[in-house]
Design a protein around this nucleic acid. Structure first.
Lengths: 221, 221
DNA sequence: TTATTATTAGAGTGATTACTCTAAAGGTCA
DNA sequence: TGACCTTTAGAGTAATCACTCTAATAATAA
């Protein structure tokens, strides 16, 4: 692999594990067994590493949030949306963890992220409108717009929430179970809008997927 | 005012405005016109300033989230809960903005915050159970537990969301309107569970309170 | 081979920052 | 007044970190 790509990969790993704030460019170079000079030959500065990682993430999300134009949406689409989005969140979790600081320090990134956010929110709305068109949801436009925004906030905050509130206890690892619990919470958000005839199949789907946080017994009952 | 209290007040202001990461102890001392030595006479270190600020915040939230035992809950209670909670969020917004990093650097704080989180989630659940007992909500236990958790995440992420996604555009100021939009989103979360006869009065209440984000025209329609 | 370019090493630097140390000043009370 | 405690000033320091600079080495082309 090219040195440049190795730097991106190692940076992503270390940022995710330790948080961007705690990873210095010297750490990255050292982990790869290269010199700081070499790192700075490939990247103008630390911001640029972050920016390049972000571009990869953005591209992936855009690819995952397409609404099919040739056919109506179905339940399975919804599950795939959520699984790919949450997987992306997990793979690039440092981005959302330190987002405010990253944006504050890089105007370019901030502009780009703002456009990205609006595109995502639009896509999320379109998905919900699509599900309603397919006869699965029962809600007015206002309901769905608010739902889309709440979904966005919930999704982008999920790992931050886990990290802050659940991980310290017994040094529990961020795990697939906790990721699936996030999907559960999104379904809970949509459930009241589901038409009667879809409640049963969706409930079964959710159950298959995994556990709610209650069942992980980290929350008060 | 005592020097110690002035340090706490100035720190809170600066942390909120610039983010904890960007405020050094020397900055704080300089703003107050006192020496660094003086600051460190009153506080062991920077962490302790943060910890003391946190304690004040925690106390305030605990006081605001009491469920009355002598009478059933009503709609007005709900509004007061949301307004005081969001005001607290705003007054101590740096806490949630940098929460993960603050917790990572202070084990004491992390332990305490974890207990606090569980207490808050429990209180939120109790409020929703109370609203159901009062005949306002129509939902099963599972619905309400998921709802309480989603409310918590949404509330604690709200200013982070605003900061990351909406503020850069035209350097729009974090404002009361944006705060009220947060309350709107919480109501949207609960709306589908509201019993028919309460939809109209709650809708009117929400309208009085202020605007949804749609009306602020920062979002795609 | 030789000339040229791309890649790498690694020592070093200037800026920042949390925090320390010593001594002085202010307050209180006998 | 003088003894004693509290509060303050402010210079200083050790550590950290993003980044630079120079020179060497590897790769490639003529």
């Amino acid at each position: 692999m090219k040195t440049r790509d190795r730097i991106i990969q190692a940076s992503l790993e270390m940022f995710n594990d330790q948080g961007e704030r705690n990873v210095t460019t010297n750490h990255i170079a050292s982990k790869l067994g290269i010199s700081p000079g070499n790192l700075y030959y490939h990247f103008k500065n630390k911001q640029q590493i972050i920016y390049d990682i972000y571009l990869i993430y953005e591209k992936q999300v855009d690819a995952n949030l397409q609404v099919p134009t040739d056919r109506p949406l179905n339940i399975n689409d919804k599950v795939i949306y959520l699984e790919t989005i949450f997987q992306g969140l997990w793979d690039y979790r440092f981005l959302h963890r330190d987002l405010q600081h990253l944006l504050q320090n890089d105007e370019e990134l901030q502009k780009r992220y703002n456009v990205f956010f609006k595109r995502c929110l639009k896509a999320t709305q379109d998905i919900y409108f699509g599900l309603r068109d397919a006869g699965m949801l029962n809600a007015c436009d206002e309901d769905l717009r608010a739902l889309a925004l709440n979904t966005w906030i919930l999704v982008t905050s999920w790992f931050g929430f886990i990290h802050s509130n659940l991980l310290s206890d017994n040094e529990r690892e961020e795990s697939r179970e906790l990721l699936n619990a996030g999907i559960y919470q999104i379904f809970a958000l949509e459930r009241p809008f589901l038409k009667e005839e879809f409640r049963e199949p969706v409930a079964m789907l959710v159950e298959q997927l995994g556990l709610s946080l209650d069942q992980l017994s980290v929350l008060p009952s």
